[in-house]
Design a protein around this nucleic acid. Structure first.
Lengths: 257, 257
DNA sequence: TCATGTGAAAACGTTCACAGCA
DNA sequence: TGCTGTGAACGTTTTCACATGA
């Protein structure tokens, strides 16, 4: 296995695009957890933590330490035996692994409550993605300016040139128009879709498609709740107090956002 | 999630874990797919389909037929050899398996764009869950009436009696207040939380906690996009035309929502 | 001494392939 | 014939346990 801990020096150097070699193929299960670590690490950094152990990370992420170590070791050997990991450095490595340097452009179609929430979401506006265009069909909304972007009419999607074409299309319309929007986006050449509308979309297999289904999350949560009650092992998990957020040194005053 | 059957062995008699025998224990991976089937089935019913095969379901869900059959067989033997499954009946069986009959009450805390989107979401208002209360801290919002519910001040969470206590708390506040809200809910006895705020929450292990992280979805989508490009096998997936939505008999006119 | 990193083992999930039934 | 339901093979993920290094 390749040891590319070499380029540790100054992380912010105007270094070349050099992706030293992805080391290993990162398994899907790990990919899904990386952003979780990232978020936790960001909070630790904000709280001033200098190091973090796999066990601490595990507790915050509600996983176990071995899994955390395996996941992180796939990115390279970035820990220090005996003390742990440097949160800031880890973030940069995860960013690299996730390809955050790519900076995808994102179009949001459907500027209702959800579309607005996403547009304004700080999280959505960073970390490798940037919302670059907004579309709607309602004349009352088209033309409105949100965060410096004018909402355009959906018909304009068809006229997007290769230049303006977003990398990722986010669908936040009502269900009844989601398929039409998807067709528009696909025809315009968009190859990645994130669908929030409560509809199953029919797009070519070559298009990457993910669903975020708000009601599914609720249902799944309800299911586990029910299972837990059935099992009779309610609260059997152990401790009464929350994880070691505080132990790590996170005070309650992370009021900056 | 782990199995703590181990710690039972010693103390008491042969473990009388005797469950009401709901067929089999449904694995987590399947639980996550069940709501997906449900949504597809609902659309098939709306389109008037009388039967559906595992292969059709698989294509719509972007899975493979064997997996669909395994999943469904865990609920019982509800298919008809030679023809397939009855969509309407399957829905009712999945509902049962997911415990949709429980009808959980849901409180939404944070009535911004996202909170409003969820409150108004048809999906959120059905399928075993009902939004029963809304909370915010902004005087401009407290008192407002949405879908027949008055938005109450967050302080009132502390005064909820066992009667009014929601089964599930949904956090849609800005990140900086999410932890405080979680503390409030937990102290009020809420044991299931769905967190949309971009914050890692520190709650006791006995509380069931799920995150819906809108930015994670984007990041993961971006990652796969990048990997696909790297692999050079772009579009290698196969067909050019979308799944058999139409073949099944779904016309484009499901304009009812 | 402490916590990482990693082979090896166990658990889990997916896919295959076909028996069984309509 | 056609499609479900399922044991058995296979691949992936998790967990264990410990050698390794700060």
């Amino acid at each position: 296995m390749s040891d590319e801990k070499a380029d540790v020096s100054a992380s912010s150097a105007p270094d070349v695009q050099a992706p030293p070699a992805p080391a290993k193929r990162i398994p899907e299960a790990t990919v899904l957890r990386l952003p979780v670590y990232q978020r936790i690490l960001a909070e630790l950094v904000r709280a001033g933590a200098r190091t973090v152990s796999s066990e601490q990370l595990a507790e915050l992420a509600r996983l176990n330490a071995a899994k955390v170590r395996k996941d992180l070791s796939l990115l390279g050997s970035f820990g220090t035996r005996g003390s742990g990991y440097d949160p800031g450095f880890l973030i940069s490595q995860i960013d690299r692994a996730l390809g955050v340097d790519e900076n995808w452009s994102v179009a949001i179609v459907g500027i209702g409550n959800l579309g607005r929430a996403l547009t304004n979401s700080a999280a959505f506006a960073s970390r490798g993605c940037q919302v670059t265009s907004l579309f709607d069909i309602d004349p009352a909304v088209v033309g409105e300016e949100i965060r410096g972007m004018k909402v355009r009419h959906m018909d304009e999607i068809a006229t997007l040139g290769a230049e303006d074409r977003p990398d990722i299309g986010v669908i936040t319309t009502p269900g009844w128009s989601a398929q039409g929007v998807a067709d528009l986006l696909v025809r315009a050449g968009v190859t990645s879709l994130l669908n929030f509308a409560p509809r199953v979309l029919d797009v070519p297999p070559s298009v990457h498609l993910r669903y975020v289904d708000l009601s599914i999350e609720l249902q799944v949560l309800g299911f586990y709740r029910a299972r837990q009650e059935e099992d009779g092992r309610a609260g059997s998990h152990g401790g009464e107090r929350g994880p070691l957020m505080r132990a790590v040194g996170l005070s309650a005053r992370s009021d900056l956002d």
